[in-house]
């Protein structure tokens, strides 16, 4: 495991609430825009490709067919 999944947030309730509140005024399309910006900002902050690929795989569990999870950049 390179992705750190141990508790790291000093104020987990505060961050959870801040995330949820950020979407309060947003319609679905705006929420998607917000998601996308936040993901890119955080992905760049994390920086480590292995960590990011692992997070992508875990987030996709149960949603993305298993045989495609490791196949994020298939050729052709």
């Amino acid at each position: 495991m390179t992705l750190d999944t141990s508790p790291r947030l000093a104020d987990p309730d505060g961050i959870f609430t801040a995330l949820a509140r950020a979407y309060r005024q947003l319609d679905e399309s705006q929420a998607r825009t917000f998601d996308a910006r936040l993901i890119l900002l955080l992905a760049n902050h994390v920086g480590d490709e292995a960590v990011l690929r692992e997070a992508i795989a875990i987030a996709g569990e149960g949603l993305v067919p298993r045989d495609q999870i490791g196949d994020l950049d298939a050729v052709p």
Binding site: R32, T33, D35, A36, R37, L40, L41, N44
Partner: peptide, 18 residues
């Protein structure tokens, strides 16, 4: 997909500043 489009547009949007 719509989310791929959102990620693309987010990159273009953020590129103005970062």
């Amino acid at each position: 997909t719509p989310m791929a489009r959102a990620l693309r547009d987010a990159a273009l949007h953020l590129a103005g500043r970062f």
